[in-house]
C-alpha cells in the first residue's frame, strides 16, 4: 500500500507536529517545529508562546500536535514551562519539557520569564523560532529584526533605511546565564538542528536553541526559497551557527566559502530598499550588513580551512538513502 493515508501512520519518524496545520506555504517556523518535535520524540511536554505557531496549530477543535501541548500567553512560555517542569519533578516524572516561542516572545516580551527560567536551572529546553519580527501581528520590528530590515514599524523612507538598531545578541545574554548548553541552528541544516535538539534533550538543566526560521510573508520571498535563504543566512555569516557550553563557545559550523551578503539580501523584499538605484544610503547599508557579517565571521572564527564534512558546504550533503552524515 502506497496510499498516503495508510503510510502516514507508519512513518519511520515520530510525528510531533501533524499535517493539517495552517501555516503559510513554505513556513520556516512550521518546518523548524516539525524538526524539533520529531527529534525530541514523544516523551515531551511542549509549552508555546502566543504567536503564529500557536495560532496555526490549534484552531479549536483541531490540534496539529501529537505531544502534550500548553499555550497560555505571549510572554510566559518559559514561566509555564517552569511550572510544568516543577510539577513533573514533584511527581517524579522524567518527561522533558520544551518551551517554544518566536523572537517576539523570546527576545522581547518573554525575555524576563526566560531569564528566570534559565537562572532557576529548570530542566527545560527553550526553542526560539527566530523569524526576526512580529509576524503574527503583521510584520512589526522586534529586537531580533536585523539592522536595516524593513518591517511595518521600521519602514524605509526619506529619513529612515529600515530598522535603525542592531539585531539583539541574544545568545550572548543566554551565555551569561552559564547554562549547560545553548546553540543556534537553521532550518537549512536539518541534520545539525536535529543533533542539537538531541544534545539538548540529553542534558539535565536549562538549554536553549535559537532556530533561524524564514518567514516568506515577512521577509518578502517566495515560499519555495525558504531553505535557500536560510542557507545563505548561514553562509554569509549573518546568522552564525554556534554552540555554547556553560556560556563558552564550544563549536561553530565553519563557513567553507563565505557568500557576499548581497546574495542573501537581494532575495528578500525586506531588504529591497537596499537596492534602490542612486541612493547612496543603500550602498552604505549593504556595506554595513557586510561588515556585520564579517564581524561575526571574525568573532566566532567561522572561516573554515579546507573541506570539512561539518562545514556549511558539507553539513547538508546527501547520498542515496539520506543525509551523508547523521
Amino acid at each position: 500500500m502506497t496510499e498516503p493515508a495508510s503510510l502516514r501512520s507508519r512513518q519511520p519518524r515520530f510525528r510531533g507536529l501533524e499535517a493539517g496545520h495552517r501555516a503559510c506555504q513554505g513556513c520556516g517556523e512550521a518546518l523548524a517545529a516539525r524538526l524539533v518535535t520529531e527529534s525530541a520524540g514523544p516523551d515531551v511536554i511542549l509549552t508555546n508562546a502566543t504567536g503564529c505557531l500557536e495560532v496555526f496549530t490549534t484552531p479549536w477543535p483541531q490540534s496539529a500536535w501529537r505531544v502534550p501541548w500548553l499555550h497560555s500567553l505571549f510572554e510566559n512560555s518559559a514561566a509555564i514551562a517552569s511550572g510544568v517542569e516543577a510539577a513533573l519533578k514533584a511527581q517524579g516524572r522524567r518527561t522533558k519539557v520544551i518551551a517554544m516561542g518566536g523572537d517576539g516572545g523570546t527576545f522581547d516580551i518573554g525575555f524576563q520569564a526566560l531569564s528566570g527560567m534559565l537562572e532557576r536551572m529548570h530542566n527545560v529546553l527553550y526553542v526560539c523560532y527566530d523569524n526576526e519580527a512580529y509576524m503574527n501581528t503583521g510584520i512589526q520590528r522586534s529586537s531580533s529584526t536585523p539592522h536595516a530590515a524593513m518591517t511595518t514599524t521600521s519602514p524605509p523612507g526619506k529619513n529612515r533605511m529600515g530598522k535603525r538598531h542592531m539585531k539583539k545578541d541574544l545568545l550572548s545574554i543566554i551565555a551569561a546565564h552559564h547554562v549547560p548548553y545553548a546553540a543556534s541552528a537553521s532550518v537549512a541544516y536539518p541534520q545539525d538542528l536535529r543533533r542539537k535538539v538531541r544534545r539538548a534533550m540529553e542534558i539535565e538543566g536549562p538549554t536553549f536553541l535559537l532556530v533561524h526560521s524564514p518567514c516568506p510573508l515577512g521577509w518578502g520571498h517566495d515560499g519555495t526559497l525558504s531553505i535557500e535563504i536560510a542557507r545563505l543566512g548561514v553562509q554569509t555569516g549573518l546568522f552564525p551557527l554556534i554552540e555554547l557550553e556553560r556560556g563558552e563557545v564550544a563549536s561553530v559550523m565553519p563557513i567553507r566559502n563565505p557568500v557576499p551578503v548581497v546574495e542573501y539580501l537581494k532575495r528578500q523584499g525586506r531588504f529591497r530598499h537596499l537596492f534602490s538605484d542612486g541612493d547612496h544610503r543603500a550602498r552604505e547599508e549593504r556595506e554595513h550588513l557586510q561588515a556585520l557579517a564579517d564581524y561575526n565571521i571574525e568573532r566566532y572564527g567561522l572561516k573554515g580551512d579546507g573541506d570539512d564534512p561539518l562545514d556549511t558546504d558539507g553539513a547538508d550533503t546527501v547520498r542515496r538513502g539520506g543525509p551523508a552524515r547523521t
Binding site: A23, A30, V318
Partner: peptide, 29 residues
C-alpha cells in the same frame, strides 16, 4: 536519490515515505 530531502523539508508533513517503491518509482508519496 532517496535522500529524504523532500521528506525532511516539507513544513506540512505532506511528503510521506514508503519502504515499498511507490508506483512512480520513488520512495516518497
Amino acid at each position: 536519490l532517496a535522500c529524504d530531502n523532500c521528506w525532511t523539508l516539507c513544513p506540512d508533513n505532506a511528503v510521506v515515505k514508503t519502504t515499498e517503491l511507490a508506483s512512480d518509482g520513488s520512495h516518497y508519496v
